[in-house]
Nucleic acid binder design. Sequence first.
DNA 1: AACTCGGGGCA
DNA 2: TGCCCAGAGTT
Length: 218
Amino acid sequence: MLTKKEIRFCLDEMGKMFPNAHCELVHQNPFELLIAVVLSAQTTDASVNKVTKTLFQKYKTPEDYIQASLTDLEQDIRTIGLYRTKAKNIQKLCQKLLDEYDGQVPQDLKQLMELPGVGRKTANVVRSVAFGIPALAVDTHVERVSKRLGFCRWKDTVLEVEKTLMKKIPMEEWSIAHHRMIFFGRYHCKAQNPNCLNCPLQSVCREGKKRMKGLKVK
DNA sequence: AACTCGGGGCA
DNA sequence: TGCCCAGAGTT
């Protein structure tokens, strides 16, 4: 695994590559962010942003989502993947917010993860972006980049990746580190094409060094 | 740990 | 038309 100093170097270089790395999900409040992130599971942020623009004009509160018919809500989000499941989850989620949290979005990780359609990644994004709570959301980009570079071990589970990153990265940098890894993974260190030949992290990257020797990168 | 759910974007 | 993208929930 890379040292803290090497990881810092990597994150700094990512910052130079993507100076505008930021959260692309538009949101005005925790509730809207929660809905947006639930919708974004297994789909691109761009697709979700198309839907939420009109969605948030039509639905303002948890009550609004519950009072709508399921088929109406499905139609309103039909252009994103898994829209039937997500429509159902959102109605159940809103009911739960009303029943248990007075219509407010909870900040507690376990309470968030008990909401339908909310897993660890979504919960951590909501905590970090909506509430400013230090949290590290591990999605496929963060996981892949962390494993390739050597921020963590290859065999680590998602949870182990999260724990390791939290240990190796200063808490006040979790948020920016998250966004830099997302951008680096999405636009440079892609799943199918790591682009090692043109990578400023080559000197420290585990997989990059292998690739330079002619070995195939995972 | 493996499998399932499902659209859009792109070649 | 077929491949790629990208989490939660269940068994």
